[in-house]
Simulated scan of single mutants.
Amino acid sequence: MFKQFNNIETSFRHVKLFTFVIIAACVVVCCFTIHRSYLKISEAEGRIYILANEKAFEASAEDRNDNLPVEARSHIRSFHSYFFTLDPDNEVIKRNIGRALYLADGSARKQYDDLQESNFYANIISGNISQTVAADSIIVEFQEIPFRFRYHGKQKIIRPTAIVTRTLITEGQLRIVARSDNNPHGFLIERWNIIENTDLDSKRR
């Protein structure tokens, strides 16, 4: 009889141990499932689908910090392109300068006003002069906010009788602001200053 009781007690211990093992396994499976579900949801939230011409294209949503250097350099490049790309057409000048001034603070407006007062834009129009700019290098320091930058580029000034190439070196700061249609990168150039703009070469046409 005592042997029977011992068998029942042993069986009960085995059943209890088996039950604990099953419960622990269920907890582990549930935790794993919740973790994987969270990862899948996060991955799904990082996908953006764009519908164009009745076709869906997948785009990726990334943390802004991943692309910060690229966006900062693109903002600086766009500003200089708008500000220094000019043609002998008042509407073109106004449009380009207007776009540039959305990307910078009053320091760019002051440079524009100074050029306007010196009849720079009037001379562009009356002299049938076109002007373009190309970046050589854009150096941005991301250690501190606002980010300091230096732009190195070359201007090409096309006159009726000659083509002049000039160096262009500017510096300033970048402050992070809200994105908009007029400022898609979400930066604002501050304390912008032209520190060098001298002739490199001149060729007759």
Rank of each mutant, 00 (worst) to 15 (best):
V92H: 07
D87L: 10
L68G: 02
A59D: 13
N90Q: 14
T33H: 08
A44P: 03
Y38M: 07
S74H: 08
I34W: 04
H35A: 01
A56C: 11
D87M: 03
F32N: 07
V70T: 13
R36I: 02
H80R: 02
I48V: 14
A72Q: 01
S81E: 10
I76T: 01
K40D: 08
Y49K: 09
R73C: 00
S81I: 04
F84C: 00
I48K: 12
Y49D: 09
E43Q: 11
L51D: 13
I48F: 10
P69F: 06
F32S: 11
E58Q: 11
A56E: 14
E91H: 07
H75Y: 02
N65F: 09
E91Q: 13
V70A: 05
E58R: 14
I48A: 09
V92W: 03
E54T: 14
T33L: 03
I41P: 01
E62G: 07
G46N: 08
E58C: 08
Y38P: 05
G46R: 04
E43K: 14
A59S: 15
S78G: 07
Y49R: 10
V92S: 12
L39K: 07
D87P: 00
I50R: 13
S81F: 06
A44T: 08
S42H: 05
G46D: 02
D66A: 11
A44I: 12
D89H: 03
E45N: 08
E71G: 01
E62V: 15
N53I: 05
I41Y: 00
E43C: 05
E54M: 11
I93A: 03
A72V: 01
S42A: 08
F57A: 05
H35S: 03
F83L: 02
A72N: 05
D63L: 07
A52N: 11
P69M: 05
L68W: 05
E54W: 11
D63F: 10
F83C: 01
G46M: 05
E71Y: 15
V70S: 07
K40R: 10
L86S: 00
